[in-house]
């Protein structure tokens, strides 16, 4: 939907301008289809649950999701007992009756525990780049679902880049340095990723084929893991999406009927005038 709209808006270049400009050049995002896309798209909750497992096992050590609470996991189809168990697995900070700082097992009403005490700690532990919170990541990036999907699979061996890719990479370097002869070079501690703006990302490759084993036996190659993860992150970004679309269908149908009636009334009233 978003894609169609962006394309449709090309005629309204005025409106589409910011979206296009923010997209930037570089490598095209990988194309795939997510079930939640389109005006009537819904979440694939099996994928969302698998994606939560990927997040929990591979991302949560560095990336917070501070806007989510464990109780929210009920919405992706986990049972109350499962949610309680997930929450209880985590120790959260609290203050006891006597005012002392303690750690207690989490409850469903607790927010997802953040891996770092604060932003400075996160920065210090991660080579100076603090891992962004993932609660809204899909909404916070242009074409966010496809972006995260591509980013997970964008780690590559720089030496294998084609001549055309090279040209794009050198273009980045030229823009960054202002030097027309500059060529692309990696900074230390960075990783080459064709889908990250500037192509150098602090995060080492987080996901590889077979990294997570699903209990339901779903295949676990990198594209599948990435897609499941994105399904989870998309749900986390907008848990009310299905409610929004469902309400929307009813509202639009109602408005069409009302508009039709209003038009008929207007025609009747004006019939004698011209």
């Amino acid at each position: 939907m978003r894609k169609i709209l962006t394309r449709g808006a090309l005629t309204l270049a005025f409106l589409a301008g910011p979206a296009l400009a923010a997209g930037g050049g570089g490598f095209k995002l990988l194309d795939t289809h997510f079930k939640f896309e389109g005006p009537l798209g819904t979440y694939d909750y099996a994928a969302v649950q698998r994606g939560f497992q990927v997040y929990k096992e591979k991302c949560a050590a560095c990336h917070s999701m501070s806007l989510l609470s464990y109780r929210n996991l009920r919405d992706i189809g986990l049972s109350e007992a499962a949610v309680k168990a997930i929450a209880a697995d985590v120790m959260v900070d609290d203050i006891d009756d006597k005012g002392a700082k303690v750690e207690r097992p989490g409850r469903p009403s607790d927010r997802f525990r953040s891996p770092f005490a604060n932003e400075a700690a996160a920065r210090a532990a991660n080579n100076g780049a603090s891992p962004p919170d993932l609660s809204l990541i899909v909404k916070a990036r242009v074409d966010g679902a496809r972006y995260v999907y591509s980013l997970m699979q964008g780690y590559d061996d720089m030496a294998k880049a084609s001549a055309a890719d090279r040209a794009i990479m050198d273009g980045y370097a030229k823009k960054a340095t202002g030097d027309a002869k500059a060529t692309f070079a990696m900074a230390t501690g960075r990783n080459f990723n064709t889908h990250f703006p500037g192509m150098q990302i602090a995060m080492p490759q987080p996901l590889r084929d077979g990294d997570v084993t699903y209990v339901d036996g779903t295949k676990n190659d990198l594209p599948q893991l990435s897609k499941d993860l994105v399904s989870f992150l998309a749900w986390a970004s907008e848990p009310k999406m299905e409610e929004r679309k469902n309400t929307g269908v009813k509202v639009i149908i109602f408005m069409l009927i009302l508009a039709g009636l209003m038009y008929a009334v207007k025609r009747k009233v004006w019939a004698g005038v011209h």
């Binding site: 939907m1 005006p39 679309k245």
Partner: peptide, 12 residues
Amino acid sequence: VFFAPDFFGEPE
């Protein structure tokens, strides 16, 4: 509002 609520907004 219901089908493209972030159309006019900025992801940032």
